[in-house]
Design a protein around this nucleic acid. Structure first.
Lengths: 215, 215
DNA sequence: GATGTACGTTACCGGCCAGTAACATCCTCT
DNA sequence: AGAGGATGTTACTGGCCGGTAACGTACATC
């Protein structure tokens, strides 16, 4: 009982420790078992509290779901930016880095694909608050991939960007059916590099690598 | 005598009209609203009958789900075979035809992506009877795409086949988030053709097209 | 006319679901 | 010491879930 370690109530309003525990527990359970498969009782219990404390922190399960998706979006962009940061000015390498990051994260050993895409399957009611979160995120992914393709001076940036997005979505999706890297995503990076080679015309800087391969 | 068509007891057990109505209703509702979102009451009611008749035809909802997935697999291969049949001996054209078929079916105007992939998201319990159906289907898709890539004399058939599968899965997945063809799948065929061009070495028969484009 | 079969109807079960009320506790800050 | 806020506890509602029992009805065949 007296085994308490950390105690701080600095959050401005409604934000306490219990809320964070519930939030993290919910994100994990939603991701592992699916949103519809997890009840608020299971979330509260998994967070070491009870349903009453849940409803003191969140107005409803749907609101929690939407908030979890928003947090997922934010974390996703953090990883995205961190992945491409080391290769600023090298859009081709940045694109590869994004896919490497995805391979390790959403397609890793204990991964279950993309939480946003999975949520899009589970939440079919058009009025669910999580819908615009998902759609906004995917739209931004598409925009950024197209922008990177343009920065890489692709012959058709929109086409390349969309192709990369399809590969990305396909990679996370197949992760749910094929365990580990045994599935087609083992060749995802090959596909990315092939598309880059095909869409990005040989420039002066890239010519040396290309001529070297041809020799 | 007992050789009538609609009423014979040729079906081993339980094959009637109500069963078919329930089956078709379930497939439609599962596809549109999701498997977990549809209860047996809604299925029976949608089929113009009641829950009791449901359980006279199917031992459980999970069995019905698995049977729906099996039917989906069978129909999927029918469409696949019908799509590639006109282009026998032309694997490259067959691959394009498959994607065209997918664009019209799983990514059509009123489509909700791939029922099998969606089911993989919703059915996370490892012991669900539908799991092996999904996995078997996706494995066969992968095998056939790789075989087509090999038949097309791709430089790396497995890599091309997997890339095509990722594009395919990505196309159906993005359909749930982007309405109509507004999403990245508008460039799916471009990606397919680009990959085919990149993986399939220019042969004598393909050289004329390629040299024509280069001129 | 008897029988069997397919189907409809009603009622019910236990369990889980999302969500709430009322009350007790404890911690923290003043 | 006292107050207020955050949390735990118990019990509850109403509804839907998957699944079942018992019974009634229509029909077709023999």
């Amino acid at each position: 009982m007296s085994e308490d370690k950390s105690r701080s109530s600095a959050a401005p309003e409604g934000g306490g420790r219990v809320r964070d525990r519930i939030f993290q527990t919910a994100r994990e359970l939603f991701y592992r078992q699916g949103i519809r498969a997890v009840g608020v009782d299971a979330i509260a219990c998994g967070a070491g509290t009870n349903k009453m404390s849940f409803y003191r922190s969140f107005p409803s399960k749907d609101d929690l779901v939407a908030e979890c998706l928003k947090a997922q979006v934010a974390e996703s962009w953090e990883r995205w930016d961190a992945a491409i940061a080391p290769y600023a000015g090298n859009p081709r390498r940045q694109i590869e880095a994004i896919f490497e990051m995805i391979m390790n994260k959403a397609c890793g050993d204990d991964a279950c694909g993309c939480p946003l895409s999975n949520a899009a399957v589970e939440l079919r009611e058009a009025e669910h608050p999580g819908h615009q979160v998902i759609r906004g995120h995917k739209t931004e992914v598409r925009r950024r991939l197209r922008a990177l393709a343009a920065e890489a001076k692709a012959s058709d940036p929109d086409s390349l960007g969309d192709a990369l997005m399809l590969l990305l979505e396909g990679s996370t999706t197949t992760r749910l059916t094929f365990a580990g890297r045994s599935g087609p995503l083992s060749n995802a990076l090959n596909a990315v590099r092939t598309l880059l080679d095909a869409y990005v015309p040989p420039t002066a800087t890239a010519a040396k690598k290309r001529s070297k391969a041809a020799a």
